[in-house]
């Protein structure tokens, strides 16, 4: 068990209940160059610091949400529900 993550609906739960889906990326809008595409598919900021990332409360309510976490300390700064289409 590692750090505790607060699900927007269920509250604080051990991180093992959640699925992690990586840092928030920007999908190219239309027919990107190969370079733009591979940058989106493979390359990551991988910051040591505050990172916006996707989580799903897989073992609980099932919601996908966004968290802002400091990757140096695993401190969760905030969680929020996604605003689709943005």
């Amino acid at each position: 068990m590692s750090f505790v993550l607060a699900c927007p609906h269920c509250g604080p739960r051990p991180v093992d209940e959640f699925a992690y889906s990586g840092e928030v990326t920007r999908r190219p809008q239309s027919s990107p160059t190969l370079r733009e595409l591979t940058d989106y598919v493979y390359f990551r900021d991988n910051v040591a610091g505050r990172q916006r990332e996707w989580w799903q409360h897989r073992q609980g309510c099932g919601e996908w949400f966004l968290a802002e976490r400091d990757t140096r300390t695993n401190e969760i700064i905030s969680v929020s529900l996604p605003k689709p289409g943005t």
């Binding site: 699925a19 889906s21 996707w54 897989r58 996908w64 689709p84 289409g85």
Partner: peptide, 12 residues
């Protein structure tokens, strides 16, 4: 999870 995630992004 894949379907749900994309739909969280798109919001259909």
């Amino acid at each position: 999870a894949w379907f749900e995630w994309w739909n969280a992004v798109w919001g259909y």
